[in-house]
Amino acid sequence: MKYNGLFQNSGTRTISITSGKGGVGKTTLTSNIALRLSQTGNKVLIFDGDLGMANVDILYGVKSDGNIHDVIMGEKSIHEVIVEVAKDVFLIPGGSGVLEFNNLNSFQRRAMIEAVGTLPQDFDYMLIDTAPGIADNVLYLNAAAQTISVVITPDPASLADSYALIKVLHQKYKENKFAIICNNVRDEAEGVGLYQRFNDVVNKFLYIGLDYWGSVPMDPVLRKATQLNRLIMRHDMTAESAKAIKNLSLQIENSSQKIVTKGGLQMFWEQVVGVA
């Protein structure tokens, strides 16, 4: 799915990047994966769906002039708030405060869909950085995406909360396939072991499929880059974490060759605001 300017909305791969609890590095991963996908010839749209703690723009060092809430309220057009944060990487800022998609009135729903319909039609990927947990907004964004990827860490609380998230999405939205990203591990071996243990527990109680997308180690270079609000894919491409993100992005591109069952960009937003 390389960018050639010819893809329509139905060709956009929508991927949520979510977690059961906060502090697992989800936003850092989303931002770095988006940059790497653009480096391999893709056009990427990020939706900062962590509506209470939106901070993707900070990692890219770009200040946005508005957010998705401004669009829904009719105060700005989506073209006024979307910002190109890097070459072929665009961001729809989530803003601050809580925005309940399920509380939108019919006018706001229509306004949202009409606004999204005016977006450029040639994105290869949209990455949705969700808030952690099982709030309604998080569930809506995940259920609307073609692929739900869950970030887990060795922290027992991360595993327990991620299991809870997967269980709710399975029971409430009939989701039965997820991708797993292991973060903050010592190395690939620990990541594989973490995935296998988590997979064993989940499949003991739920009849679902978990794909292993890869692991990203917590190395000193990544820690330093994050402290400086820098992306590791810009800071040091030779770092172990950067190599892991390259592999992770390649896995995402390879999985894009599989047949997807949900619609693309337009269908995602229609499902989120409840008109599909």
Rank of each mutant, 00 (worst) to 15 (best):
S149N: 11
G214W: 09
L59P: 02
S19I: 11
K177V: 08
D50S: 06
G23H: 04
R197M: 15
E190A: 12
A189S: 13
V273L: 06
V150G: 11
N42H: 11
D219K: 06
K224N: 10
E253Q: 09
L99D: 04
I33N: 11
T153A: 08
H79I: 08
S106V: 12
F101P: 00
I113W: 10
I68R: 00
D57F: 02
I180T: 00
N199H: 08
V89Y: 00
T30C: 12
E190F: 11
L222M: 01
S77H: 07
H235R: 07
V275W: 06
G263D: 00
I33T: 11
V260M: 00
I259T: 11
L222H: 00
W269A: 03
I128W: 03
F178P: 03
F268L: 05
N103G: 00
N9Q: 10
V260A: 00
K262Y: 09
T30S: 12
L127R: 12
D236L: 02
P154M: 13
I68T: 01
L29N: 07
N137E: 15
F268K: 02
A54S: 08
H79N: 10
A276G: 03
I148G: 01
V150W: 12
G209T: 13
S106P: 08
S241H: 13
D161K: 13
I181R: 06
G193A: 10
A143R: 04
E188M: 00
G117A: 06
Q257F: 12
A131M: 07
D200S: 06
L194R: 10
G94M: 01
K246F: 14
A276Q: 01
P156C: 13
I181K: 03
T18Y: 13
D70S: 07
G264Y: 01
P132E: 13
L35A: 14
L250K: 12
Q227R: 15
L206G: 02
W213Y: 14
V85T: 08
M237Y: 04
V56E: 09
K43Q: 01
G191S: 06
V192M: 13
L265V: 05
D187I: 05
R186M: 12
D161A: 13
A225V: 05
N4T: 09
G25A: 10
T18E: 14
L141Y: 07
I148A: 02
L6E: 03
G191W: 03
A225D: 06
F47D: 04
N247C: 03
L45N: 11
V116A: 15
T27L: 02
V44E: 07
R110T: 15
I78A: 05
G52P: 02
C182H: 11
